[in-house]
Design a protein around this nucleic acid. Sequence first.
DNA 1: CTCATGATATCGTATTACGATATAATGAAC
DNA 2: GTTCATTATATCGTAATACGATATCATGAG
Lengths: 138, 138
Amino acid sequence: MSNRRVRLDKKEYERLAAFRATLRRFVRRTEERARAVGITPQQQQALLGVMGSPGKDWASVAELADFLQVRHNSAVELVDRCEKAGLMRRVQDESDRRLVHVTLTPKGKSVLDQCAEVSWAELHSLGRTISFAPDGEE
Amino acid sequence: MSNRRVRLDKKEYERLAAFRATLRRFVRRTEERARAVGITPQQQQALLGVMGSPGKDWASVAELADFLQVRHNSAVELVDRCEKAGLMRRVQDESDRRLVHVTLTPKGKSVLDQCAEVSWAELHSLGRTISFAPDGEE
DNA sequence: CTCATGATATCGTATTACGATATAATGAAC
DNA sequence: GTTCATTATATCGTAATACGATATCATGAG
């Protein structure tokens, strides 16, 4: 479990590339599903960010930004577009009026459900297809 | 192993969101590393696509497009930018002059090495942190 | 009350992936 | 060996979007 940095050899690069390709193809499939139901991939992930907020049915703009790994203002703009598309609603927090509760509209929830409608087989195989174990790992 | 589609419940959404967040954070870390060595994330992945080409030290534009999951023309443009940055070179295939061998310059290889210089610990933990196993999976 | 901090919002800009289209080489068919 | 569909790469204008800089407004500490 040393922390020393290593230089990858050709074969390790090939494994790393294969790993990243698998990752990218998985993401691509979900993006295509999003477009198939009429929303952008970013909107789909924003919906997931709200629905996936632990123990709540809403998320703040800052939470969404963290989830999406984008700047606050980018999250604001994405929520704007989602609202305009009828997928989300903004509700002011009552105790802290700086805070915004971003929630899903029925349409937003419905669209997310359609996006997330994945076969059990695909969910099951995810853990196996998306993995990276260097040679010789115990 | 049925193929029927399912509707995710709240808790499953939370797990899916956590999974995607982990994925995104991992990608983000590598992107930051790319920027730290002076190239764009796309250029870094293009370099990896060439170096990771199985059994070869080059890749065609079409192979890169497939690896990156972008259109052919987008790959062309990315190779343009990589060439302009001195990271790659184009070499015509001798037997099929339509084909282009995209190869790394010494600088390109050096920069890729710097990007890929990851600790063994991080490589080891990848398989564990990036995984998604639904509840009750055997 | 003042002021630093935090949360969200606005706006102009730059990057980039894309569709449509073009150029050029290959190979098959006749 | 000429024609033509196919394949590989390239060009160009456009649209989407993430960003930095900046602004607005609420909160809480002192």
